[in-house]
Every structure is written in structure tokens, then in C-alpha cells.
Design a protein around this nucleic acid. Structure first.
Length: 522
DNA sequence: GCTGCCGGGAA
DNA sequence: TTCCCGGCAGC
């Protein structure tokens, strides 16, 4: 039974040669998609005929009889009609016949051979039956290993064809086409619900307002984070390139946290707990080549596309819906920015840069100033010529200098003169590193996350630039600084725990003084 | 609520 | 500088 199932499975998907449809005599290759029985008379071994539905290289389906097609798994030696191939193998012994089954034999044919073998064994009671059985077992197991027969280049090509067809069909699937909005909704809601598990998370002081930090690499979410494999894989190709172009990439080999988050926030269906719902602002970005205009309303962007790109002057009533194809919806996190800015301190302003773009998962694009811009109805004013979007202006790329996990770990301190009253927009413009040697970063914040819901056709410029804006310029209020510098609570045993209150005299001095334990340091 | 630890005050 | 404690914040 096992063997039979294997055989049946192996014939489907096998590559075969078939007569050229054009009649020029040159055989073409195809993959067996289905097998039909023309004659079901099992008793007549030679009388049974199978019709093979073969998927040709050009994607068409054709039916061939057994005689017309030949095994293709070995185009050098096994080429020839199925039948001859069969004969050849049977002449080499029972075991041989099974070896080729995966490549070219029809299930029925193989079954026939097995029956023949059984008969032989049955008639021949002598010890050979044992060895035959043994042999057979080996053969069967070897037949399981089909891969070697599928590794040829042509085989790969066929696989590609098949894969392409599958993808084509999938592309029309509602699942794949789920509205971007939903993605973002899930994202934002999860952010709202869980603000501490994400790659970039509000640190302990988030409640005090404006204190954000990038979690350390170890804390960051990693690839193991449950996420829809499909969406992740399918979208990676689109996003990775853009990252490479922009990413300052100073960071370590990997910064899964940011990437993960970004990626998910960008395109994945995965609900990513990072953002507060109310912090998300929906913007619409024109995807027209070299445009990239961002507007706050769908109507606005549609009108923009209709008038600017489609050259239509009539109003919405003359819209044919075509505009929909030329813009995408993006979500901006405005809330966190506001928090961060509100807490700006003139004393210790600092610049935070998001973790560098990691290789794989796409980082989200954080954008600061734009989020604060009033929903501009600036249909009339083009942000930037040459496809630069407002997003790209949000922060100077030069700020993309520092990558630290915590403020106190900042490697490249930069002093930033900024006033606490700065609005987001002004902050980005006024922020200029003036003294690179005399300042420390008090806190980091990825306040704004840009989440593009779709891949822009003009992504060559779009994502790259947008990504570079993953910069937050924020200063930390005294309180936030304090919190950052606060020593992480030790997890190990402390003098108090070890000796107890009754033996307080045995405590280390620090413990006695309610300072950080010096004896049992973590 | 317990505990670790920071900031700050008193000696 | 040493010692102590109020109070914050993580668990």
C-alpha cells in the first residue's frame, strides 16, 4: 500500500517529454498534472492506457497518451516513450523498475510490475523470495527519495512555472489583498494594548511622558516573533532593497527589533503591539512616479492625482476610480512625538536615532515632524519636487548618527540645541548638532512610525527616503533622565535577602545605606 | 506589598 | 565622607 501511494504521488508532478505542439518534432518538457485511465481493464496488463494531462512550459495544459510522452527526469538516458522506458527497466529486474517510477512510470504501470513480482515470488518458494523482499524494501525506500530527480535545471524551471501559476492565483486571493487599513488598525490597537513588549517601547517612564527608548537588541523582538510567514516573506523583497539604499546601517549586524516592528507595522497583518491607536494619523501618499505627495484625505489625494497626474479637471463626479491605484495609505504616529516634544528640555536635549536598518525584516519608518503638521489640505502645494515627500524632510539624514540601546549607552553624544516649546516641525529644523563632544543622550525615541500600507511603485525613492527619517529628535525631561540613569533593579540575591533584616550588620555597606548592593552585584 | 536603589539630607 | 532615610519603581 505504501508503495502504491508513493507511486501515485510520484507520477503527478513528474516531468516528461512530449511531442512539440508545433509539430516540428522537437520534444518539449512538461509536468504531469493529472492521469486519466482510458481503459480500466486491469486484467489486461498491456491493454491499459493512461492519458496524462501535462502542464507545458508555456503554461498550457495538454493531454498526451502514454505513448506520446517520455520520461523527462533523465533526459539523457531515459528519454523515450514511457513504454520503452518501462520495458527497459523491467528487463533490468524488478528492483530497477521501481527506481524509475518517480520519474516516468504511471502508477498503474508500476503497480503491474509489483503484481508481477509478487507472482514470481509466490511461484518461487525458494529462498530467493527473501532476498527479493529485502531488495524490494530497499528499492521502495530509495524511491522515496525523489529530490535527485527533480534537481535538474529544467525541473527547476518547471517548478518556477508552477510556482508562478500558484502565485498568480494567489495574487487574486482576498487574503493577500486585505486592505492596508486593517493591517494598520491591528497594529495600532496592539500598540495601544501593549506598549512594553515591542522593539521600541516606551520605557518605564513612559507614564511620565515623553520618555521613550529603544530596547536593547536582546530585548528586541526577534524573527521568532510570531508573524504571518506569508506576508513577511512575500513582502520582504520589496522592502529590503529600499532599506539597503538608505540605511545608515551603523548598527550591529542585526537589529531585529526595529526591523521587525517596522516590517510589521509596514505591511504585515500581524498585530504589532507598539502603537497607541489614537497616535496614528492616516495620510495618503501619491504613488505616481516622482511625486510622492502626501495628503491627509483620500479625497484630496484623489483630486491631486486626477488633476495633476491624470490631467482631469472635472470634479469627483467624473472620477472613474482610477485614482485609487495611484495612492496609498500611510499611518503616522503622532502621539508619541507629541509626548516626546512636550517633554523637551532645554537643558539636555538629545538626538536619538533608531537602530540601524537590519538586513532582513524591514524597519518601520519613523517620522517626526509630519505627524504634527496640521492635516494639510494642501492639494495645491507640492511638498517637494522630484518625488521628495514631506516625510523625507522630517529629519536630516545627518542625524542618523547614533544608535544606542539606552541613553547612557550612547556612543556618539550629540548636543542639540532645541527648545522645549518646539513643535515637531520646528524641532526637526532647529535641531543641529553643535557640539559633538559635550553632550549625552538622555533618551531615545522613535516617536513616529511611518507605516506604509502598500509598496509604492516609486519605491526606489519612496521607501528609502522615508526610512531615513526614522529619526527622533527629542530631549529628555529631568525626570526621564533620572529614570534612565537609574540602575536596573538587580535580580539576584541581595544582602537584605541573604542575611535578612535581623542580620543587617552583615549587609554590605551599600545595602545598609539603601544603596545599590555591592556584594551581590548582578 | 516587598524590595532594590536613587537622591538628598544630616552628622 | 559617612550614614541614613524618603520615596520611586520594578516585580
Amino acid at each position: 500500500m505504501h508503495t502504491r501511494r508513493l507511486v501515485k504521488r510520484s507520477i503527478l508532478g513528474s516531468r516528461v517529454y512530449a511531442p512539440s505542439p508545433t509539430g516540428d518534432g522537437a520534444p518539449v518538457t512538461g509536468v504531469v498534472q493529472a492521469v486519466k485511465q482510458e481503459n480500466r481493464d486491469v486484467s489486461a496488463v498491456g491493454a491499459r492506457r493512461s492519458v496524462y494531462t501535462v502542464l507545458m512550459q508555456d503554461g498550457s495544459l495538454k493531454e498526451f497518451s502514454e505513448d506520446e510522452i517520455a520520461a523527462g527526469f533523465n533526459h539523457t538516458a531515459a528519454k523515450g516513450p514511457l513504454k520503452s522506458s518501462l520495458k527497459q527497466s523491467s528487463s533490468n529486474g524488478a528492483s530497477e523498475s521501481y527506481k524509475v517510477e518517480g520519474g516516468s512510470l504511471s502508477p498503474e504501470t508500476v503497480e503491474e510490475h509489483r503484481m508481477v513480482d509478487c507472482k514470481r515470488i509466490g511461484r518461487d518458494p525458494d529462498t530467493r523470495s527473501v532476498s527479493l523482499l529485502e531488495q524490494k524494501r530497499k528499492v521502495v525506500s530509495s524511491s522515496i527519495d525523489v529530490p535527485h530527480a527533480r534537481r535538474s535545471e529544467e525541473e527547476v524551471d518547471m517548478d518556477k512555472v508552477t510556482a508562478a501559476m500558484v502565485l498568480t492565483s494567489l495574487s487574486t486571493s482576498p487574503l493577500v489583498r486585505s486592505p492596508p487599513v486593517k493591517v494598520n488598525e491591528g497594529l495600532s490597537s496592539s500598540w495601544k494594548d501593549n506598549g512594553s513588549t515591542g522593539p521600541f517601547t516606551p520605557s518605564s517612564n513612559s507614564s511620565s511622558g515623553g520618555y521613550w527608548s529603544w530596547s536593547a537588541p536582546s530585548d528586541q523582538s526577534n524573527p521568532s516573533t510570531p508573524s504571518p510567514p506569508l506576508s513577511a516573506d512575500s513582502f520582504k523583497p520589496f522592502r529590503v532593497p529600499s532599506l539597503g539604499g538608505v540605511g545608515p546601517g551603523p548598527a550591529g549586524p542585526e537589529d531585529p527589533s526595529l526591523d521587525e516592528q517596522d516590517g510589521s507595522s509596514l505591511l504585515f497583518d500581524e498585530p504589532i503591539p507598539r502603537k497607541r491607536k489614537n497616535s496614528m494619523k492616516v495620510m495618503f501618499k501619491c504613488l505616481w512616479k516622482n511625486c510622492g505627495k502626501v495628503l491627509s484625505t483620500a479625497a484630496g489625494i484623489q483630486r491631486h492625482i486626477r488633476t495633476i497626474h491624470l490631467g482631469r479637471n472635472c470634479d469627483s463626479d467624473c472620477s472613474d476610480g482610477e485614482e485609487d491605484f495611484y495612492y496609498t495609505e500611510i499611518k503616522l504616529n503622532t502621539d508619541s512625538v507629541a509626548d516626546g516634544l512636550s517633554s523637551l528640555s532645554p537643558v539636555s536635549p538629545s538626538v536619538l536615532s533608531p537602530p540601524p536598518p537590519p538586513p532582513s525584516p524591514l524597519p518601520s519608518i519613523n517620522q517626526l515632524p509630519d505627524s504634527h503638521r496640521p492635516p494639510q489640505s494642501s492639494d495645491t502645494k507640492e511638498p517637494h519636487a522630484g518625488g521628495t515627500t514631506p516625510l523625507s524632510r522630517s529629519a536630516p539624514s545627518a542625524l542618523y548618527l547614533i544608535h544606542t540601546d539606552h541613553a547612557y549607552q550612547a556612543t556618539a553624544p550629540v548636543s542639540i540645541p532645541s527648545s522645549s516649546s518646539n513643535s515637531a516641525g520646528s524641532a526637526s529644523t532647529s535641531f543641529t548638532p553643535t557640539n559633538s563632544s559635550s553632550f549625552s543622550i538622555s533618551w531615545q525615541s522613535p516617536p513616529v512610525t511611518f507605516t506604509g500600507s502598500t509598496v509604492s511603485p516609486s519605491k526606489s525613492q519612496g521607501f528609502g527616503e522615508q526610512r531615513s527619517q526614522t529619526i527622533a529628535v527629542l530631549s529628555s525631561p529631568p525626570r526621564a533622565t533620572t529614570a534612565l540613569s537609574r540602575k536596573v533593579r538587580g535580580e539576584g540575591k541581595k544582602c537584605r535577602k541573604v542575611y535578612g533584616m535581623e542580620n543587617r550588620d552583615m549587609w554590605c555597606t551599600a545595602c545598609r545605606w539603601k544603596k545599590a548592593c555591592q556584594r551581590f552585584t548582578d
